[in-house]
Simulated scan of single mutants.
Amino acid sequence: MATISGFTDNHFQSRADFVRAAEALLKPLLKYTSPGSARIRFRPANAALFDDVAAQLEGFARPLWAISGLMRSGTGDNLDMSTWLRGLETGTDPTHPEYWGDLKAHDQRMVEMESIAFLLLTAPDAVVPQLNTTAQQSLAGWLRQINKHDMPQNNWLWFRVFVNLALVRALGVPRDEVQPVLDDAFERLDSYKVDGPEAEGWSTDGAWTDFTKQADYYSGSFAIQFAQLLYVSIADGSIDEEAKRAARFREEAKAFSAQYWRYFDANGAAIPFGRSLTYRFAMSAFWAAAAVAGVELAEPVSNLGTVKGMLLRHLRWWAAQPDIFSQDGILSIGFSYPNLYMSEEYNSPQSVYWCLKSFNVM
């Protein structure tokens, strides 16, 4: 058991509490950061189905779900934000030893591009001016690779959406260049919607077939509903198609919330089911994203204070589970205690920090 000051003693009542918790979760990572700041690798290591450079990229990129809010607000004084800015430079520089590598089909690097895109979309003024022209071009060139390779036809399509929006809005890529890619991604994502009166805003994580039937937290807090709410929060209302799509996503979030609140106990604990339970408090990311997007949800979670309560009670429950941490403050693979049975073949030691999606509210 490891008591982590700032998290396990956190009452989660205010934004200041979120900042303190983020710092507590992120500071232990720094001693595992590479000299060029582009990679984070924990010890002892275990293998995932993808290469170790991609796993080390996970370690760098997944904290950006929290770092973005700290950069945007100018808080997080106990963390050196230049670490992540330097990592963006070295990781996307093909001549640097810590280059994250070129993409190939179904590459894990595509997943980690989502949080980088989120950083660029939500905190561009804190990032882009800090990168010189060469670094900006290298970053754009590395991100552009997501359009050149096949990817799994599921929630990964959202990573392509956010990357292309970031390329346009933060890095100066012409909209016309990426519009066909966006149109194709949205057409495929729309085909995953569950139809009928019992749909309740759900999507499946990919096509529903005799061989693939997937609907779990990825369809909600981990990926699809979460991504739709992020889109609502960044949609450009002056672009008709974005405004219409955002309006539809608001309605789907409202329908989804009418039942999703039942997945959470009064003490904040959530039902453990489906894949990737080692992502832990990512289960509450839907509530965080809903608050950021300012969507009107269904009863009994129609009040913003109730949404805040859903998120904070969940985090308080996790704060009362000190066995999720190793002695050096790193989150382990597992659920309420270290347990490799809770992992999948795509979980590296760094993967667990997808839990920081619930910190996008900062």
Rank of each mutant, 00 (worst) to 15 (best):
S203T: 04
D107V: 09
L139M: 07
V173C: 08
Y217R: 03
H149W: 08
A170H: 07
A170Y: 05
L139Q: 02
N154K: 00
Q108M: 09
V178G: 06
F186P: 06
A215W: 09
L119Q: 04
E198H: 14
A117W: 04
V111I: 12
Q130M: 13
P124S: 01
S115L: 04
V128F: 09
W100M: 10
L157D: 09
E177I: 01
D125S: 14
Y99L: 11
Y99I: 01
F211I: 11
Q179V: 06
D102G: 13
G101Y: 07
K148W: 06
D190A: 13
F159T: 03
V111T: 08
W158G: 06
L121Y: 06
H106C: 10
F159L: 03
P180N: 04
P97H: 11
L167R: 03
A123Y: 07
F162A: 03
A166D: 00
L165Y: 08
K104I: 06
Q108R: 12
E200C: 13
L121N: 08
Q145D: 04
L121M: 07
T204M: 10
A166T: 00
P197N: 15
T133M: 14
F211L: 13
S138F: 13
M110P: 02
V163M: 02
Y192L: 02
V127A: 10
W142I: 01
R109T: 02
T209C: 08
K213L: 01
K213R: 15
L120Y: 07
W100A: 10
A105Y: 06
Q214G: 03
D93P: 00
E200Y: 14
I146N: 07
D107P: 10
I146Q: 05
L119T: 00
W100H: 11
A166Y: 04
V181C: 11
F211N: 15
I116Y: 02
G196H: 12
S203E: 13
P197G: 12
D210R: 05
D184M: 12
D183E: 14
H106T: 06
L157A: 06
Q130I: 04
Y192P: 09
E114K: 14
T209L: 07
R160C: 04
